[in-house]
Amino acid sequence: MIVIVAGLNVFPIKSAGAVPVAEAELTTDGLRHDREYMLVRPDGRHLSQREVPELALLRPDYDGVKLVVHTPLAASPLVREAVDGPPLDVTVHRRPCQGMDQGDEAAEWFSEVLGLPCRLVRFAGTRPTALGGGTLTYADGYPVSVLSEESLDDLNRRMDARLPMARFRPNIVLRGLGPYGEDSVTRLRGDQVEIELIRPCGRCVIVNTDQDTARRSSEPLRALARYRTERFGGTREIMFGRLGVPRALGALRAGGELTAS
């Protein structure tokens, strides 16, 4: 089946806002620069919108050299060149990994903006995926997330208010699969790229956070729980979208075609 890449999103800082892009390079760790940075507490634990919804209001832009972060929470943006600072031991969901500290200026800016002590780190080392033999940076468990427009349309028909795709923070938005068609897809192939979809994407309270205001409600998690709760790996999760691992690397373009199988 031929499907359209309806959108591409890169998240330079884990749990912060998205950067919609027209083209992205697919690397072994996902879209280039995705989740390359992360904010951590003094003990090294990662910051997430689960506990700090205001992270949604950070709007980062990163070209591989310079990180610029705008937010309505600060009078002026952070402008910071990437540095190979001292390595820090950090964790993502209690799993150890490493990051290069980005300095006191960045730490002070983020701490003031968010109202709690934190530091900015840039990914270092390697992290394996739980399944599929892939690697990733600071994403929760897999380097690529996929969701179809039709699945969101179906969810919105079940709710009183329509939600934008931004609530679900996918790297790749697809069109042409039909509602929940991604559930049965195992491969996405293009002229250069190939992605193996490994498992369903379990959802948490982050989808209840308005990405423009940081306000949190009970939806859409409550609506999804009524018909998208599944058992995977011995636990029950609310599933919406799929997670994958790159198998062939190259450029992805919004508006381009992929073969889903």
Rank of each mutant, 00 (worst) to 15 (best):
L8V: 14
L8N: 06
V10Y: 09
V10D: 00
S15Y: 03
V21K: 01
D29I: 08
R32L: 14
R35Y: 08
R35L: 03
M38F: 05
D43V: 03
E51K: 15
E51H: 12
A56C: 06
L57E: 00
L58Q: 01
P60T: 01
D63C: 07
V65F: 13
L67W: 03
H70L: 12
T71S: 12
S76R: 15
S76D: 14
P77G: 02
G85I: 05
P86S: 08
P96M: 10
P96E: 14
G99H: 08
G99V: 05
D101T: 09
D101L: 13
Q102G: 01
A107H: 11
A107G: 11
A107K: 07
F110T: 03
S111T: 11
E112A: 15
G115N: 09
R119D: 03
A124M: 10
A124N: 09
T135Q: 12
T135Y: 15
A139V: 06
V146S: 04
S148W: 06
E150M: 04
R158V: 10
R162T: 15
R169P: 00
L174Y: 07
Y180G: 14
G181H: 10
E182W: 05
V185Y: 12
E194W: 01
R199D: 14
P200K: 01
V207K: 08
N208E: 07
R216F: 04
L221G: 04
R222C: 04
R222D: 10
A223F: 07
Y227P: 08
F232A: 11
G241C: 04
R242Y: 07
R242G: 02
G244Q: 02
A248S: 13
A254G: 03
A254Q: 07
G256A: 13
